[in-house]
């Protein structure tokens, strides 16, 4: 027979334990936090001390007055009017507006493409399903930067100009730009109510195609997460395929999709900072030029970080609102 635990019970455990003062249930957490806090504090103080000392030596102590000096550089393409005689802050603002422009259009495009491809995964057509899978697997495993360079240098810059340009109904693709509306060839130059530069177009295409693949996965996952029983229940009630999708499946899928979309949207916004690859001037490239001219590294980096943080927060706030809407419908 096994030796039983209670065989021990005759030997008392209660050897008095001496308590070191620090091993106190309520004290220890504070001690740990104090130690960590002190460590971080010392590190930060050390870094900041160095920063101040080094900046003083270089004559670059934090100041913002240089923002009002004339920039002296041009930006090829701006929505907010800008020229070299305007101050730096105006240049940075123009860059920010350019960034916002590509981000907003990119979000719309990527959502459309991603939703379409994500839903294609549920098509009855095997070829379509396969192509959707191929698209996602292909795009997600190639770096965004490489794709942007590809779109710009290999696709858009290779477009012919003038009469040889690629002409589609209502759209002309030429090396000189993308023309939308009713493009007309005037003196071998295309003219249209809406024109996009190839730089902008390639950045937008790259971002849409890249983020679209991730959104497709999010959408597919969201729809797949709706239990099969929901489809069956709807069908047994006599609802058609389209109605089932619209009224039963999509509302439930959205509860999974919307939170995941948030991080994809933010990563698109951050991805737009690779605009330099396409020769498009966004906030980051203006900031880089500004730094090269003024040497104001700390200020420029602070502006950059703050701007992207604000963009992220705005996106998150919007998506949280949307999320609340989607989740509320349930109750």
């Amino acid at each position: 027979m096994t030796r039983l635990p209670q065989g021990l019970a005759t030997t008392p455990l209660a050897t008095p334990l001496t308590t070191p003062w620090w091993r106190h249930r309520r004290l220890l957490p504070w001690l740990v936090q104090g130690a960590v806090g002190l460590l971080v504090l010392v590190l930060v103080a050390f870094l900041l001390g160095n920063l101040v000392r080094n900046l003083t030596n270089a004559g670059l102590l934090l100041t913002w007055s240089w923002l009002h000096n004339p920039a002296g550089f041009e930006i090829a393409e701006t929505t907010l009017p800008f020229n070299a005689s305007m101050p730096y802050w105006r240049g940075l603002l123009a860059g920010l507006v350019n960034t916002l422009q590509v981000v907003v259009l990119g979000l719309i495009g990527a959502t459309a493409l991603g939703t379409a491809t994500g839903m294609a995964a549920f098509s009855s057509n095997g070829l379509l399903r396969g192509l959707a899978r191929l698209y996602v697997d292909l795009i997600r495993n190639i770096p965004l930067l490489l794709q942007l360079l590809f779109w710009y240098f290999v696709v858009f810059l290779a477009l012919p100009n003038g009469a040889a340009a690629v002409q589609l109904p209502g759209l002309v693709l030429a090396k000189s730009g993308l023309y939308l509306g009713q493009p007309q060839l005037v003196n071998d130059v295309w003219q249209a109510p809406l024109r996009m530069s190839v730089e902008f177009a390639s950045l937008l295409t790259g971002l849409v195609v890249y983020t679209g693949a991730f959104i497709a996965e999010v959408v597919r996952g969201g729809v797949a997460a709706v239990p099969q029983g929901q489809w069956e229940a709807a069908r047994s009630l006599g609802l058609g395929q389209a109605l089932t999708l619209r009224r039963i499946v999509v509302p439930q899928a959205l509860r999974v999709i919307v939170p995941a979309l948030n991080s994809q949207y933010i990563s698109l916004a951050k991805g737009s900072s690779l605009a330099v690859a396409c020769g498009y001037t966004d906030l980051y490239s203006v900031a880089e030029t500004t730094l090269n001219q003024t040497g104001r590294a700390v200020e420029v980096v602070l502006i950059l970080l703050a701007s992207y943080l604000v963009i992220d927060l705005v996106i998150s706030a919007l998506m949280n609102g949307l999320n609340r809407l989607v989740q509320l419908r349930e109750r």
Partner: peptide, 24 residues
């Protein structure tokens, strides 16, 4: 679970604020 008032003594050890006693 922690408790706010009263005493608990288990096998001669009073549950106090010493973490090693709790482990014991």
């Amino acid at each position: 679970e922690e408790f706010q008032h009263g005493t608990i003594t288990v096998d001669g050890i009073t549950l106090g604020d010493d973490l090693r006693q709790i482990d014991a």
